[in-house]
Nucleic acid binder design. Structure first.
Lengths: 207, 207
DNA sequence: TGATCCATACCGACTGGTCGGTATAGAAAG
DNA sequence: CTTTCTATACCGACCAGTCGGTATGGATCA
């Protein structure tokens, strides 16, 4: 009953970590099976192909992230500027741990597959952009409150925030470690603070 | 005799583009040979292994970049703040073209190999950090001129700039295209402008 | 001048291991 | 007994790397 469903879930969770460690192409189906404690027969019962697993894993990763962020404390912050800064602070705090566990599966996948496995690249890319749009919505609220006349778009800022986070992961993998990544998020936070001057009682900053 | 050396160079140049298109693992040695118009026999005459090719390609990419930037006009700008902004503007301008031709081989390689091919990951990572340090040196000059008391480090800012650029590539691959990448570099430029207030005649901005 | 030798570059058929995917049969559940 | 899931043996394509061989050109010496 839930046993069957459990194998599928175990395979997906295994994929999350194995793909982030070895990348898509270099991961063997049996690597995922071993990590999940399941055999190949079971794997191909649940997924038609390795590619299908990757698409499903991107989906699952995205759902995990949505759940995590939906329940995070920063969500309840009333002031939109502080809420946006709270998001960045959370992303910074999430940098604690080994790289394959803290980095983003979607960024890894899209980079490796965008030209050669369109289905995977598209799935991963869409989830990245969707998440960027959610952040963009927060940015829109903050912009409306702090810098309504500014000549940048909130959606663009949401994408920029995602880019900095993805870039921080690459920097960490390049040898900078999570410290360098954290420093990047500090710069990002500082940028947002400068870009969104806090509203003082009844006053609003211009662009 | 320069003919022979030419084959090696052709293989390296082919590797630059093929690795950026297909990634390291998914590229077959024969893909590189085909792109270079050279046979497998010739390949293994010049490189002991595919891994060795990747390390050499990272090196070559880095040299290409160094040459490009060393000869660029922004280098001659006297004002350190404008010089740094000029670098970012150049990076933005370089975004014109198909993704596999404008993206960074080093970021691609490090992401895919950092856990499974230490030699490649190390080489790519070191070149990224070395380039970040060069940018960091420019940032140091700008900081000294515009914000000597600021509580961020120039090296950290150099790394941040690299991270934004790498992140912009991922965003582009995620479906945002080069437009989204350009927008990121616009944000980066704006950040630097805010961070480094221009020095007015004889005055210096504080942190 | 040209005959001999050698080093470097190049060629492509072949091999041995790897790995995605299949076949098939058994276990568990209902 | 049927359906769903798991296990294992197996297949065949693929591909990094090998190997025996050819081509080219420069040096050496009579």
């Amino acid at each position: 009953m839930p046993r069957q469903t459990e194998s599928r879930a175990r395979l997906l969770d295994a994929a999350l970590i194995v793909f982030r460690t070895r990348g898509y192409t270099a991961t063997r189906v049996e690597d995922v099976c071993a990590e999940a404690g399941v055999t190949k027969g079971s794997f191909f019962h649940h997924f038609k192909t390795k590619e299908e697993l990757a698409v499903a894993a991107a989906e699952r990763f995205s759902e995990h992230a949505d759940t995590l962020f939906a329940g995070a404390p920063y969500r309840a912050v009333a002031d939109p500027r502080e809420r946006l800064l709270g998001y960045v602070a959370l992303r910074r705090a999430l940098l604690d741990g080994p790289l394959p566990e803290v980095t983003c599966l979607l960024g890894t996948l899209v980079q490796e597959t965008y030209e050669i496995h369109p289905a995977i690249g598209r799935a991963a890319g869409e989830h990245i952009l969707a998440h960027a749009d959610e952040v963009g919505a927060m940015a829109a609220a903050a912009k409306a409150a702090c810098a309504p006349e500014a000549d940048w778009s909130a959606e663009g800022l949401g994408r920029h925030i995602q880019a900095v986070i993805q870039g921080a992961f690459i920097l960490a993998k390049a040898g900078g470690g999570t410290d360098a990544a954290r420093e990047c998020l500090d710069h990002l936070g500082r940028y947002l603070e400068l870009l969104l001057p806090p509203v003082e009682e009844g006053r609003q900053a211009a662009a």
